[in-house]
Design a protein around this nucleic acid. Structure first.
Lengths: 210, 210
DNA sequence: CACATTATAACGAACGTTCGATTTATGGTG
DNA sequence: CACCATAAATCGAACGTTCGTTATAATGTG
């Protein structure tokens, strides 16, 4: 119920302008992740957010605009991977940091689990400016890490960097994907995360070390 | 334009009863894979198949019935993996056979690339009898292959079979998923497939052999 | 005639968008 | 301080479109 400095209007809902906007974004994030763009009507969405339906057009220019905003917010987190590459660590440590990063991201972000989908690869066509640079950026950085490791004789010389990156990311991703597909609950404990990271790193490093 | 034995009627379209049904299934398979259940209207679908809209209700009892038939057909192919396990090969050879199988399946079957999605995990809820046994069966068989390999001292004793299966499948899957996400074309050549299989097996076996 | 299929129309429901009315906070004016 | 005009924020109803389904009459085939 708190007010924002740049807002002078408080509605009978008790939400001010920014609260209302955020409520729409967070509700849309959850619902679109669960059922896709076409799987959610703005009537249900606005009702679930406790807000009038017209607010979606008012603030986001319509349903697609809201969807675009959600994607923008979700994929902006990809930029954080730059930090991993800037450290002085060895290539292997960087890779472990990346695996840790992608696991945490997947835990909190259903869009990373689902952005391959028909509903969400359409956005890569409709909103290529949001999704493609994010993915491309991650792949590029990881390829560079692998290439560094090869150059410093830490990794096998015959590795194909791009395929290796995809293999590595795949090991982590697929665990979550299959967990979803088989309808099992994702166990959120940090201990299980640690166990996973250790396990994947173990398999992976034996395959790439020189 | 060939006739089927159990059909005596040939329409002015030149399609007989079974051809019409198959045309609907194949068109629906393509369109649903591209855009999901909610992304395609039966008006567009029937038009694209060159068939009257009423035929969908007539033959499949409606849109969901058609979708269910498509899923059924797609996931029935999962049973083929049983054959791999029945051979006398070593565990490693079985795994290579599985990787080959999943690559070929993914090439021909967009549903295997997309069944994790919001559009298609909904079907795992709405049609659990179709999707879940198929996936569960594959995982179960592969876990057994790994366990056999461990028991025969071919693989490391400390491997977690389930996680190892997911890691292995992930390496292959992720290649296709990221290929989709980054909008690159999937290169269909058998040579590229061979190269991929060799590459993944190379990384993977170094990680699991005892 | 029986059957398969078409084209068409109609249905109610749901969709995303638009619009006029209302509520609220603000700043100017006396 | 009281008043008022204004602009921003919000609402709910209404609009036109599309959806999946169903019914119907007409047409072609065996």
């Amino acid at each position: 119920m708190s007010r924002y400095l740049n807002s002078y209007y408080v509605n009978k809902n008790g939400m001010d302008k920014n609260e209302l906007r955020n409520k729409l974004i967070s509700t849309a994030t959850r619902l679109f992740a669960e059922r896709g763009l076409n799987g959610v009507s703005i009537r249900e969405l606005s009702k679930s957010a406790g807000v009038s339906i017209s607010m979606i057009s008012y603030y986001f220019g319509g349903k697609e605009g809201l969807y675009s905003s959600v994607l923008q917010e979700q994929f902006s987190s990809f930029e954080q991977i730059d930090d991993i590459n800037k450290t002085d660590s060895e290539a292997l440590a960087k890779i472990e940091a990346y695996i840790r990063w992608i696991i945490v991201r997947h835990r909190n972000n259903p869009y990373l689990l689902r952005f391959y989908t028909s509903e969400l690869t359409n956005p890569t066509q409709f909103f290529p400016s949001i999704v493609q640079p994010a993915i491309g950026n991650v792949i590029q950085i990881l390829v560079q890490i692998i290439e560094d490791g090869i150059a410093k004789n830490q990794f096998r010389k015959d590795l194909n960097p791009v395929d290796t990156v995809l293999a590595m990311a795949g090991m982590v991703n697929y665990y979550f994907l299959s967990t979803l597909a088989t309808q099992e609950l994702i166990n959120h404990s940090p201990e299980r995360d640690q166990e996973l990271i250790r396990h994947y790193m173990d398999i992976f490093t034996k395959g790439i070390l020189s």
